[in-house]
Structures are given as structure tokens and as C-alpha cells.
């Protein structure tokens, strides 16, 4: 008889983890602390301090995008969770639909829309308005991030909100809570785990993106992801420096997430008092 809880069933996963997660991580650490000859050095790490302004800008834009995603996705996910089952299925289908198209292609499309001679500016000129500078701005980068990553905010929020039974909202109303009180005292605390995972799933890829900033941000919106890309694949190839920058980014992301999740748990504990 095969016991599904037998230890050996987890071996493929462990092997996978070792090969494709742990090992690459160790390699990054190794290259970050060595020079091209393989000798130990702190120069790469010290040098990556130069990139802190870039990193701060990356975090700023990613945080802004995450915030927009949250503000847009939250009411949407809530309304969606209150729809009938068949409509819910249709809505999640519509959310997933753009993801069937290649990420690069979608971003190209935005390029075509935002360009100086693009769709929007053509329309603006046609109705006699002056053209606007849209492409190569940090706004375009944030827009690209929001557009590409909002499904990752909607889906965890939606899945947690479907678990909030209608009768719980009715109970809140029955006990005297109006719309905003029900939101603040019931819906918000119950959806916190969804907010935490949604924010994580949007912020992490947004802070390390290079495609979106490269295609929509122009030269003025050089993000940490672009930097790493150039160091690994571009003309300033430097495996060790690139590893150090990656390491810096990882550490910063980890710290940000730790602070964030801490803040969230404290907040939810407060709600209990």
C-alpha cells in the first residue's frame, strides 16, 4: 500500500528546491563576495552602495504601483466575491485573459499607446488638444506595473473574500454597523491575509522589474532591475558586481517584507484588543 504521507513523496520537491533555488542563491552569495579570480573580497558589496539611489527609486515606484493595485483591486475583489458563482467564474476568467498574452507583448502594446505619436496622442491631436508626454516617464512605469501585476493583487484578495460569508456581513449590519463600520471592523480585518499576500505578490516582482522600466520608462527611469540586467547580460558585464547588486536587492526586499508583515500582524492583533 502506498502511503501518501510517506517521506519519500517529498524528495522530488527537495531535489528541485536544492537544484533551482538553494544552489543559485548560494552561487549569488559566492559571486558577490569574490572577485573575477575567485578570491574573497568585499569590494563588490561596497561598490553596490553606489546604487542605493537607484534602489530607492525602484522601491518608491514599486510601492506606488502596489498601492494603486491595492486601491483598485480591493473594491473590485469585494464586489466580485459577492456575485453569483457563474459570474464569479466569468470575472476571474476575464482577469486571467490578458495573462494568456506574452508579458513583453503586453508592454509593447502600452508603448504603442503611450508613444509621442502613439494612440493617445493621435487622439488628443485629432480633437485639437496639445499632445502629452506619456512615454518615458515614471508615471508610465507605474502604469505598466499596475497593469501587469494587478491580477496578482485581485486573486488573493478575491479568494480570501469569498470566505467571508454573507451572514457575517448581515450580522454586522444587524448589530448596528453601517457600510463603513462593517468595512472597518469586519471586512478589513478578515481580508488582511489577502492584503499581505497580494502586496507581496505585486511588490516583489515590481521592485525587480527591468522590462517595464526599460520599455516604458526610458533612460530617466533606470531601476535596480535594469542595472542587474546590464551587469549580467549587457555591456557592463560583471558577474561579481551583478551578484552583489542582486544580493543587495534581495536583502532589501526581505527587510521590507519583514517590516510589512510585522506591521500587518500587529495591526490585526490590535483589532482583537
Amino acid at each position: 500500500m502506498i502511503r501518501l504521507n510517506a517521506k519519500w513523496t517529498s524528495y522530488p520537491y527537495i531535489v528541485w528546491m536544492l537544484l533551482f533555488t538553494i544552489l543559485p542563491l548560494l552561487l549569488v552569495v559566492y559571486f558577490a563576495f569574490t572577485d573575477s579570480s575567485g578570491a574573497f573580497t568585499l569590494d563588490n558589496v561596497k561598490q553596490s552602495a553606489l546604487y542605493i539611489p537607484t534602489l530607492v527609486n525602484s522601491i518608491y515606484l514599486a510601492a506606488l504601483a502596489t498601492l494603486f493595485c491595492l486601491v483598485l483591486a480591493y473594491p473590485f475583489a469585494f464586489i466580485m466575491s459577492r456575485l453569483s458563482f457563474s459570474r464569479q467564474k466569468m470575472m476571474s476568467m476575464l482577469i486571467m485573459l490578458p495573462m494568456w498574452m506574452n508579458f513583453l507583448l503586453r508592454t509593447y502594446a502600452w508603448q504603442a499607446i503611450l508613444e509621442d505619436n502613439g494612440v493617445i496622442n493621435t487622439l488628443l491631436t485629432a480633437i485639437g488638444l496639445p499632445p502629452a508626454t506619456l512615454i518615458n516617464t515614471s508615471g508610465a512605469v507605474v502604469l505598466g506595473m499596475v497593469y501587469n501585476y494587478i491580477p496578482f493583487m485581485i486573486l488573493p484578495l478575491y479568494s480570501i473574500m469569498t470566505k467571508i460569508d454573507k451572514s457575517i456581513l448581515e450580522a454586522s449590519s444587524d448589530l448596528g454597523a453601517g457600510f463603513f463600520a462593517t468595512f472597518r471592523r469586519v471586512v478589513l480585518p478578515l481580508s488582511l491575509p489577502g492584503i499581505v499576500s497580494g502586496v507581496t505578490m505585486v511588490f516583489v516582482p515590481a521592485v525587480s522589474t527591468f522590462v517595464i522600466s526599460g520599455m516604458l520608462g526610458g533612460s530617466g527611469n533606470y531601476l535596480i532591475g535594469d542595472l542587474i540586467e546590464v551587469q549580467f547580460l549587457g555591456n557592463s558585464y560583471d558577474l561579481n558586481a551583478g551578484s552583489a547588486t542582486s544580493l543587495l536587492l534581495m536583502v532589501v526586499v526581505l527587510i521590507t517584507m519583514a517590516i510589512f508583515s510585522r506591521f500587518e500582524t500587529e495591526d490585526s492583533e490590535e483589532a482583537l484588543v
Binding site: 460569508d165 451572514s167 457575517i168 450580522a171 454586522s172 480585518p189 483589532a271 482583537l272
Partner: peptide, 8 residues
Amino acid sequence: KYALFPHL
């Protein structure tokens, strides 16, 4: 179904 608030 009681409808108690699970977070409280």
C-alpha cells in the same frame, strides 16, 4: 449558522 466574527 451563528455568523460569529471569526477574527474576534
